[in-house]
């Protein structure tokens, strides 16, 4: 093995004195100190707000900017009449590697639209955020661009999003009243529906039976 001789640099006289070096360090920290102090003060006055006084992002009040390709919580896109664009083709449910999507399709009254989702659930506790559902959708009906990151729940039930939450990203469980303006067969609009999983399922089952 070749021996490698490393020459450590000797300290010069000025470096050995410590004090000039300490002053150099103080200069750096003082520049930061006074710059940030000045910026904090003028921010209070509302000027120079494009210059940041610290790298800290105060999380709940201030969110980090996301890239446009970032995959955040899902949403179902809407038509002009506020009905979901989804045609219940089941492609996303099929492609989902985590099997977190459950779709129950129903017959759409408009003959040009084949089907509509009576039930569209995503269990975010299972979802791996791969984005395949977005890629595969032929109707551009599902997207992952809500920018919602604070997904947390005390229960597993809370991690399941039903169609109401997916269509309106502002909604959080429990869903108060059905906001799904679906003029046809959706029992959810019939009143009394509070966003409970079982009730949606029941009505969906009925739907399927009726469809047959």
């Amino acid at each position: 093995m070749a021996k490698k001789v490393v020459h450590r640099p000797e300290l010069t006289f000025w470096e050995k004195l410590y004090i000039p070096q300490i002053l150099t360090g103080l200069k750096i920290t003082s520049i930061h100190f006074f710059r940030n102090l000045f910026l904090h003060i003028v921010h209070r006055l509302g000027i120079f707000s494009h210059l940041r006084a610290g790298v800290t992002i105060q999380y709940p009040e201030e969110l980090r900017p996301l890239f446009s390709r970032y995959r955040s919580r899902h949403r179902l896109t809407l038509r002009d009449d506020n009905t979901p664009r989804c045609v219940g083709c089941m492609l996303c449910e099929t492609v989902c590697p985590a099997k977190c999507i459950t779709i129950v399709p129903g017959e759409h009254p408009d003959p040009h639209v084949e089907k509509y989702p009576v039930r569209f659930d995503i269990d975010l506790g299972i979802c791996v955020y791969c984005g395949y559902c977005v890629e595969v959708c032929p109707e551009d009906a599902i997207r992952m661009d809500t920018g919602i990151l604070d997904l947390a729940s005390d229960t597993r039930e809370g991690m399941r999003l039903d169609i109401h939450q997916l269509m309106d990203p502002e909604l959080r469980k429990p869903v108060a009243d059905c906001s799904l303006e679906f003029p046809h067969q959706c029992e959810v609009t019939g009143g009394g529906m509070k966003g409970s999983w079982d009730q949606v399922k029941k009505s969906a089952d009925k739907q399927v039976v009726a469809g047959e």
């Binding site: 920290t29 100190f33 102090l37 904090h40 610290g54 790298v55 105060q58």
Partner: peptide, 10 residues
């Protein structure tokens, strides 16, 4: 606060 200002924190 002073350490925060020196280190570009809040």
């Amino acid at each position: 606060k002073q350490s925060a200002l020196i280190q570009d924190r809040i």
